[in-house]
Design a binder for these strands. Sequence first.
DNA 1: TCTGGGGTCCTAGGACCC
DNA 2: TCTGGGGTCCTAGGACCC
Length: 481
Amino acid sequence: MRSSASVLHLDLDAFFAAVEQRDKPSLRGKAVVVGGVGQRGVVATASYEARRFGVRSAMPAHEARRRASHAAFLTPRFAAYRRASDQVMEILRSLSPAVEPLSLDEAFVDLAQAREPVELTDPGLRALVAELKAAVGAATGGLTASVGIGSSKFIAKLATELGKPDGLVVVAPGAEVPLIEPLAVSVIPGVGPVTLEKLQRIGVRTVADLQQVSVLELSQVLGKAHAQGLADLAYARDDRPVEAERETKSISVEDTFETDLVDRPRLTAICERDARQVVTRLRAAGLFARTVTVKIRRHDFSTQTRSTTLRSPTDSPDAVVGLARGLLDGIDLTGGIRLLGVGVAGLTDALQDQLFELDGPGVATVSGVVAAQVADADGVSGDAAGDEEADPSVADLPERPDRRWGPGLDVDHTEYGRGWIWGSGLGRVTVRFETWRTGPGPVRTFAADDPALSRAEPLPYRADEAAEPPAAAATSPRKSP
DNA sequence: TCTGGGGTCCTAGGACCC
DNA sequence: TCTGGGGTCCTAGGACCC
């Protein structure tokens, strides 16, 4: 918690619905519900008019229809929301470089890092926010936002909530604890339905009640980390920084089906499609993944995940597809599946530590059986190999044969030298040649039998390598197409 | 005709290593 | 002829958030 109210939180009011009302005047003043429209859809956003009928976010669409049958039910138009979101985020960034978006419609701004010094007094902040809201309205065609300002993320976000819609609440330093004490514990982020139930069972209903419970007792009910977190927030202790750059940790795609699916070939095809979509996004982000996860949800809503981790990261569609299919093969589909998803994690941008050196033309061992030699490195990247004296520092690098075995991963390779070969899988070798002078070239993926990779003698394995079986290949045999 | 899709973080157990 | 202790990585599941 800071000594001044310098964390700003902004939340666009009923965002998806507001964009729809903006773009379609006939919807203005009407109940609008944006979300999944199918049998299994849920409400993403309800306009304030719809909320009067008890329609809420995350409510099943059929329940929303029951409560507000007269409402307009719309499928989300994410492209439009993203445009409006980008406009708003740009305005926030003009205020301070430290902007942390939480979603399309929400962000924290660190005013302590503002580009122009901000007067962190009540009148100073009110003037600032008046300008901010005017700018948001002008840029987005009239969208309104609620703003909260306080000495921490928790307090700023709570303040926003208290002022909705189109509000501004500034919580003065020192006023935090008296503000939160009488409120329900569920105002604390991290207290969801399950935690709420557990807290109620030990007699905790308000934040003040929570203050009376020892961390030890709380730990026994909630686990250590959660307990400490809540105990701190009960006294408004919150030092979480506003982080502009957050690294992506996982990428996933999932579908819920209109009716449960049992047909394995069909699910396999969907799994493959999802895996390809994941890789498309992975590549668009310039990332590589080590862990592939398949997730299913059964008819009874129970969820199962199966995952596998590679020795080294990949962005190969074939590798990810093969692994995902292998994982799905191991899952019992009896009884029907309502959801199937594929995700990747263990992400790196690969340039940091996954590369290794080539000296001269690259050599790749495929499946430990044949070796492929890149005959013409120039043809691949422009300027990879050949010039052995290019940089004396290369000679100082240790020779690093690199072995890569992983479930379903049937390509192994060993390289020496000055260029980079990175990623491989399922009969493919992904190569990026890079020199110390030219930097990374484009990534190219070759089939193991691509003529660009000329066959060469198998590389000898060292004794300790030979002793190690390609265990993973056995755990997840790849199905022939 | 209950319960989306995209994420983050935490826990717990087992393997493995020193 | 007995079985530590810590750290890390991996897998699976679950709570929570927007």
